[in-house]
Amino acid sequence: MKKEIILESKFTAHQKTHILVVLGIPVVIMTMFVLSRHYNNSSVSTSDLGKLIFLGFVFLIVGLIIFFKNGVLKKDDGLYLGTYIFGKLLFKKEIDLTNISKLAILKLRKSQKMAWYSLANPDQALSYDRNDVTLLNDKHTQKTLLISLEDENLANETVSFLEENFDLTLETYSPDFS
């Protein structure tokens, strides 16, 4: 029985583009500035060398952030939502399963505004489908989003993992407010 399941990338392609633009381009510009100062003066100052090392470190971290993936894991009878990089767990957040006995997959169509795109169409938006794996109480009146996935097969795999490792059952979302 698997104790963890690594799922999709933590960021969409649009978010990855933003990360690279907002964090990556300033690092490249500063690196070019420091290198041009170095070659114009033809001497290496320790402050310039320190700036280059710092910028290289920032660029490396930005590059690694893009490869983060979400996952679900079981540890000591607890459910955790994990952040992975190259298959290694970096961070985990415990999910409280008090009064949670059911789960559902909610299929939703979402849209995201496209920042920094065409001025001719400023309200341009990207539409996409998501499969939200949601934790529910007995009457389905309280729901908690566990994870939102693009791939329906991964959502079904996540549900199977949760049913095998925890006392949760898959149901069709139908709240009973009586």
Rank of each mutant, 00 (worst) to 15 (best):
154 L>T: 03
145 L>M: 05
42 S>I: 10
10 K>P: 05
64 L>E: 03
121 N>V: 12
140 H>P: 05
104 A>S: 15
136 L>A: 06
5 I>V: 13
113 K>W: 11
145 L>I: 07
41 N>K: 13
64 L>M: 08
155 A>N: 01
55 L>Y: 15
143 K>Y: 13
13 A>Y: 06
29 I>T: 12
77 D>C: 07
73 L>C: 03
60 L>H: 10
30 M>G: 12
105 I>R: 04
85 I>N: 09
172 T>I: 14
31 T>C: 08
156 N>T: 06
52 L>E: 02
57 F>I: 12
56 G>S: 07
143 K>L: 14
58 V>G: 03
98 T>R: 12
176 D>Q: 11
153 N>S: 07
39 Y>E: 10
139 K>I: 08
15 Q>W: 06
167 D>F: 12
172 T>K: 15
13 A>P: 01
19 I>P: 00
140 H>T: 03
2 K>H: 12
115 A>I: 10
21 V>E: 00
170 L>P: 02
86 F>H: 12
97 L>A: 07
68 F>K: 06
55 L>R: 03
138 D>L: 10
75 K>M: 08
44 V>H: 05
166 F>H: 06
24 G>D: 03
29 I>S: 11
60 L>Q: 04
1 M>N: 05
7 L>P: 01
129 D>Y: 11
79 L>N: 00
69 K>Y: 11
123 D>C: 09
104 A>D: 00
50 G>F: 10
